[in-house]
Each structure stands twice: as structure tokens, then as C-alpha cells.
Design a binder for these strands. Structure first.
Length: 305
DNA sequence: TTCCAGGGGTAGA
DNA sequence: TCTACCCATGGA
């Protein structure tokens, strides 16, 4: 028997629910965006091991996000607290964006995109999921990133009982338990297979405390060094992960960044990455977001498609 | 066929 | 610190 419960998550001010579309993450499983109902869905594995479906929408009356949960076990207050904590992390409801908004207000082009209440780029309930997904964005097209992540979830994630085709993101322990050959054949991530497997094994055997890293209040340089020590994480991925940890002072320079900045600010001239990056230097701690919204001209459509 | 995508590891200088 | 070379996968 299915159990349902709906509750409201408080949001900061200003806040626009559609900001969840500012990042490409809602296109990656187990997230799903239903444009007809403006609903962000996610299959989530709870701490008690059961899998529930979450449906997030802007609250009908007043501020906040309405979360409708459907799961196989009774949804008590403890579960509500757990899901609230996870979704608050995913939607970054605790981040202080005020300084970024103040700076954006001085830049009409950026402000036109950021407006009031955007900029909270969607992430995952866990750093593990964010790191795996980031590795899946390196040296690959976005459509293949989506396919790789979908295969990972379909093959190894725990199923939602009401619809087993919908699964939660696999835990590190679940992935570490899979035979390498079986993992590679199902995930088909190319040379990234070994990176993701090693990450999962190191977390599962306790040699890497990734979530502890996310929770620890480390100096940024130390945090970045620890992130970059993960196999498969270079400069681009490390800076993307820093962004996912709420540190926006580094730019993640990739082919997309170059393809945007070079023609716009250098008339297509062959300039190196250092020079390209200097375009956003004035933004200091907010360089990543400044670039992100500079390179966004479709505010009402899912980003990075 | 060849190229290369929201790069990174490694060896060698 | 920098460069050359290699790397699975699959679409163009």
C-alpha cells in the first residue's frame, strides 16, 4: 500500500522555484522535469532503505516549495525532516546569495538573467552523486552524459515499488558491490568506468569520507586540493565540484566556456585560457555564476540542453 | 572514415 | 610547470 504525504519547504527571499532549471542537473536521472505541470520529480532512497517518489512544485499560496511524497512505508515526521534536509541541500536553500545579487544589480546584462531569486543551481542530495555526474560531463557530449547517468541509475539504483522503472541514484556501497565487468558493461562510461568504480570503492571501504569533506568547513584551497585528488577530477571537474559545494570563485573552463567567451569578448581570436578567464576576474567570489548567467539567454527553458 | 565532445592521467622534459 | 600522447564512447 502506498503512503502519501505533502509538506512545505520554506524558501529564502528572494527565491524563484524555476531557478531549478538554471542548471543542467534536472535533466539527469533520477531527477525529472515535467514542464506541463512545472514539477521537479525525483526518486529518492531514504535512510530506512525504502524508495519514495518526490514531486516538488512552487507552493500554490505564498512562498515555499510543496513536496508531495509517495512511498511504500508510512511517512513519519522523521522522514519529513530527512527529505527536507536533502532537498534543501539539492536546491541550496541555505546559501546566502545576497552579495551575488548586489553585484549582479550593477550589471544589467547579468541581472536580466539572474533577476530576483535565481542562481541557486540545482545539485544533488549527496556530494557523491554530484562528483559522479561531474565526471560524466568530462570529454563527452551532454546527450551522452544524460545517457550514461540514466544507465547507471537504471542498472544499479534501488527501484520505486510503485513503478520499478523509476529508480533512486545508487549509493557508493551499491556500486562498489558490483563486479567491475558487470559495471562497465551496464554503465558504458568508457574510461570513466574505472574512475567511478574507484570512487565508489574508496567511499565504501572507508578510505575516503566524501560526505565528510562536504560537511567540513575546510579552507577553499584545501577543499579544492582534496577534490582534485579524486581520480578523474582535473581542473574543470574540480572547479565544477567547488561550484556544487557553493564556492563560485573558480571558473570551470571547458570547450563550452571557450566557445562562448572567445567570440563574445575577443572577436574569435586565439587567446589562451588565462586571458579568457580574466573576463570574469572582477566578480571575485562569484566568477562561476557571472559566467553562467552571462552564457544564458533562454531564462525560461532548461539550462545546458 | 575522421573528428571530437561542457577533459584527465601519465611520462618525460 | 608544460607538452605529447593516450584514453572509451557514440554522434555528426
Amino acid at each position: 500500500m502506498a503512503h502519501q504525504r505533502t509538506f512545505t519547504l520554506a524558501t529564502p527571499a528572494p527565491y524563484l522555484f524555476l531557478s531549478v532549471l538554471d542548471h543542467g542537473w534536472p535533466a539527469l536521472a533520477p531527477w525529472r522535469w515535467d514542464s506541463a505541470t512545472q514539477t521537479l520529480e525525483r526518486t529518492e532512497r531514504l535512510d530506512n532503505g525504502s524508495v519514495a517518489l518526490l514531486r516538488l512544485q512552487a507552493a500554490e499560496a505564498g512562498p515555499g516549495i510543496a513536496i508531495a511524497m509517495e512511498g511504500p512505508v508510512e511517512i513519519d515526521d522523521k522522514i519529513v525532516v530527512e527529505v527536507s534536509r536533502k532537498m534543501s541541500r539539492a536546491l541550496r536553500l541555505d546559501e546566502d546569495m545576497s552579495d551575488f545579487y548586489a553585484r549582479a544589480a550593477q550589471h544589467p546584462a547579468i541581472y536580466a538573467q539572474v533577476g530576483d531569486g535565481r542562481g541557486r543551481l540545482l545539485r544533488s542530495p549527496t556530494l557523491f552523486e554530484d562528483v559522479v555526474k561531474t565526471i560524466c560531463t568530462t570529454n563527452i557530449t551532454w546527450s551522452q552524459t544524460k545517457a550514461m547517468v540514466a544507465r547507471l541509475v537504471d542498472a544499479f539504483g534501488a527501484p520505486w515499488s510503485a513503478d520499478p522503472t523509476r529508480r533512486a541514484f545508487p549509493t557508493a556501497e551499491q556500486l562498489a558491490a558490483v563486479e567491475p565487468d558487470k559495471f562497465d558493461a551496464a554503465a558504458r562510461m568508457g574510461y570513466r568506468n574505472a574512475y567511478v568504480r574507484e570512487l565508489a570503492v574508496r567511499i565504501a571501504d572507508g578510505s575516503l569520507d566524501l560526505e565528510g569533506l562536504a560537511a567540513a568547513d575546510l579552507p577553499p584551497a584545501e577543499l579544492r586540493k582534496a577534490v582534485k585528488a579524486i581520480k578523474g577530477v582535473g581542473d574543470y571537474a574540480a572547479n565544477t565540484i567547488m561550484m556544487l559545494l557553493g564556492r563560485y570563485e573558480h571558473l570551470a573552463i571547458d570547450s563550452e566556456f571557450r566557445a562562448f567567451v572567445r567570440p563574445r569578448y575577443f572577436d574569435g581570436a586565439e587567446v589562451d585560457d588565462k586571458e579568457l578567464a580574466a573576463v570574469y576576474a572582477d566578480w571575485g567570489d562569484w566568477q562561476y555564476l557571472a559566467y553562467w548567467f552571462d552564457n544564458m539567454d533562454t531564462p525560461d527553458e532548461p539550462a545546458a540542453e
